[in-house]
Computed example of a mutant assay.
Amino acid sequence: MAEFPNPEEANPIEPGCARCPQLVEARECIAWGVGPLDADVVVVGEAPGAGNPDADQWRGGNWTGMSYTARHSGRIVRDLLDDAGYPDAYYTNAVKCFPPDGEGSNREPAREELANCFPHLETELGQVEPRVVVTTGTHATRVLFERAGRELDSLTDAILEPVPCPPLDTTVLPVLHPAYQHMWISRLGMDYEAYVERLADELDALV
Rank of each mutant, 00 (worst) to 15 (best):
P21R: 06
S105L: 11
S186Q: 12
L160A: 09
L80D: 08
R187I: 01
P167D: 08
V95M: 11
F4T: 05
F118A: 13
Q127N: 08
E46K: 12
E197A: 15
A47G: 09
A200P: 00
L173P: 04
N52A: 13
E25M: 10
P7M: 09
S67F: 02
I185K: 02
W32L: 06
P167G: 10
R75E: 12
R107D: 11
E8D: 15
V132A: 15
W63C: 10
V41C: 03
E25G: 04
S67V: 06
E161H: 07
C97T: 12
G33M: 07
Q22E: 15
D204C: 01
W32I: 07
I159F: 03
D82M: 01
N52I: 10
L203R: 01
L199K: 01
V207G: 02
G16N: 09
T135F: 03
Y192I: 02
P174T: 04
L173M: 06
H177C: 05
D157P: 00
S105A: 14
P5T: 07
R71D: 13
N116P: 00
E103N: 14
P7K: 08
A115C: 01
T64C: 11
A179G: 14
G51R: 08
D82H: 02
T171N: 05
E14I: 07
R27E: 11
Q57L: 15
V24Q: 10
G149M: 10
A194H: 04
D79N: 15
P21F: 05
P174F: 03
L176G: 06
D153K: 12
L125A: 03
V172K: 07
P174H: 04
L203S: 01
P178Q: 03
